[in-house]
Amino acid sequence: MALIEIENLSVTYHVGGRSIRAVEDVSLSVAARESYGLVGESGSGKSTILRAICGLAPVSGGRIRIAGAPVKTPRGKAFSRHVQMVFQDPYGSLHPRHTIDRTLAEPLAIHGIGDTDARVVRALDDVGLPPAFRFRYPHQLSGGQRQRVAIARALMLEPEILLLDEPTSALDASVQAETLNLLNRLRAEHGLTFLMVSHDLAVIDHMCDRVLVMQHGRAVEELSRAALAGAQMTTDYARTLFEASADRMLEV
């Protein structure tokens, strides 16, 4: 059975009397321990799907099921134990006036989980940060270190599903490599399921087993990793995206 099932999802924003369809009739399913990618350009609706799963976007149609059960609105505490999200910009997603310790301990306090001290230290160790970072503030950390904290925060409640919204696009190439390696190691160690959004096909290819190409809020084409590597896409748009992908520039 699939862990994440999305059926005919539509998201419509209402802005000043106009309605904007950000996502239209998208279906996908992700098996447990699978890593699934969403790729597309800005405005293609890829991030909106993640936000819709978390209840952060106005769903206007379709169904979202996690582990077979339809999600409740509002999502509630049980949902947060299963599903957590890592956002794109580590400069904006950490509270600037909370220490790392407070950021990591907050989910534990909300969910009434004890043993805070040991869990925070273990979480820092898990993402490869020294324990001394515990009492620092976000502005004292580099972008890559902040993203590690954001990943540690998402893992505090030991979820099965991580929603990753462009987790490395704000980072330098070498830091991106370290962060991707970290995510892959954590997925193996914790048996996580990833739903990952990126505009970079090469990153998605490195991280994911299957990928859904999106454009203008619609699903264009689903590709397996082998089909992507073998350039076996059938739609023009997926091919355009593939041709324009930066890593192909060295071949030319």
Partner: peptide
Amino acid sequence: CLPRIGGPRAPLPGL
């Protein structure tokens, strides 16, 4: 350190 389409799944070499 840059991932490539069709590249190996091994950890990316860091700097």
